[in-house]
Amino acid sequence: MNSKNLQGKSILVVAGDYPYPPNHGMVVDIWNRILILEKIGLKIDLICTVKGNTDSLDKSEIVKHVNHFWIVNRKNRVIDLLSKETIQVKSRVALSRLVINQHYDYLLLEADYVAEILNNKTITYDYAILRSHNNEGVYYKNLGESTPNIFKKFYYFSEAFKFSKTEPALLKKVKNVLFVSMDEKKRYDKQLKGINTLFLPPVIKLETKSRELDNKTVLFIGSLYIDNNREGIQYYIRNVHPYLSQLDGYKFIMAGNTKHHKLQWIDDILRINKNVTFYDTPDDLEPLYAQASVFLNPMLHGAGVKLKTVEAIVNGLPVVCFPTGIEGTGLQQGIGNLTARNAEEMRRYFEKLLTGTSTEKQDIVRKGQKFITKNYDAERLLSNFLSSL
């Protein structure tokens, strides 16, 4: 690890969302990376963009880890649907006007959404780096396919088309790209020449946990306001949950970030199913992992790496999913997960795990944890990458 020559160097991290508390996929990744950057000795400044009132945001923990901290408001306008830029980028245009007057060794863009920071004339830097959390064009296309709402469908497909045009241009402009997905890194390496790429998996705390796994509780943790998670959970409730409900002692725990919105589809599930428990935006996920024996990743559509799958394995649970649930992770069948091709196969895998011995489940988990420990040392990878620039 080449962290000695990074001591005292400066980095400006620009995040498209508020990174604390880290209670859903991308935010977990951003927050853990901030902690890694601090650990390897960089002086960190942070800009994050938020929508709405900022008074309730917890700033106390963030200021412990960064030197300077700015919050920029996002503004969504209907007229921006006509822009060549995506709504996600246009809503953060205030990034270009923020007055900082500072030079940095590194500028880290957390996703394409914050590309407007490159137009800020008060910031200079030696190296710009993009964290590619998703192939955004593919991601929004999948969201469009997941939602039944015609207005959302139009918005998602519009964003998908715009990202498909702007994303390659941004990659060429920034040149240094940290891909969260090995699959997407390989794809862009073939398509674009002259960019410096690295597969940087999500910043996972490699403190793996072992659990008894002696109950019949299935757990889902994820962003509940995202349509591809909603679609996957509803599919599970319709096609798998009724079958598993015949098992004595079976329960399903559903937890995640709702952005404090009332979601009718969750209320519908809870009204009909007495063996489903819901936790809205929990601050601490450990008690939830401790209650469960198997983790569900039901996603049918998606892009990038599936952080919820990796986190579940590190936290001691075997995962049952469809192929989308392990995309970009490098995981194979039987290594931390059982990947189903259809609902019938998913039912069989859940029954096998829920009625099987703890030893069988723990063996699957250990194989996954061994793979992740070997290939997901983000501190080493990131330190070497920054040192090499």
Rank of each mutant, 00 (worst) to 15 (best):
I204V: 13
L192V: 15
L213I: 12
F179H: 03
F199A: 05
V177C: 06
R187P: 05
P202Q: 07
I195Y: 02
P201Y: 09
F199W: 08
L198G: 09
K193S: 14
K209M: 08
K185T: 02
M182W: 01
L198T: 03
E207H: 08
R187K: 13
I204G: 03
T208I: 14
K190M: 08
R211Q: 15
L200V: 05
E184K: 01
F199N: 06
I195F: 03
V180N: 11
P202N: 09
K205Y: 08
S181M: 06
Q191K: 15
L198D: 06
V177E: 00
I195G: 11
V203W: 00
R211M: 13
P202M: 06
D183P: 05
K185A: 03
M182Q: 13
K205L: 04
R211T: 11
I204Y: 02
I204W: 00
D183A: 08
N176I: 00
R187M: 11
T208C: 15
R211W: 06
T208P: 05
K193P: 15
D189S: 10
K186Y: 04
T197F: 02
V180H: 01
F179D: 03
V180K: 02
G194K: 01
Y188I: 08
N176Y: 05
E207F: 04
T208Q: 06
G194F: 00
L213D: 14
T208F: 06
L213P: 10
Q191N: 12
N176S: 08
K186C: 06
S181F: 09
F179A: 01
L192Y: 10
T208A: 15
P201T: 09
N176M: 00
F179W: 04
Y188H: 07
I204N: 03
K185F: 02
N196V: 04
L200H: 04
K190C: 06
D183F: 03
R211I: 12
L213W: 14
E207R: 03
L192Q: 10
P201M: 11
L192K: 08
E184R: 00
K205N: 15
L200N: 04
E184C: 02
L200Y: 07
D189G: 09
L178N: 01
P201Q: 09
P202S: 13
L178Y: 01
K205M: 03
V180C: 13
V203P: 09
R211P: 05
N176G: 00
L192T: 13
E184H: 01
N176P: 03
S210Y: 07
L213Y: 13
D189P: 15
L206S: 11
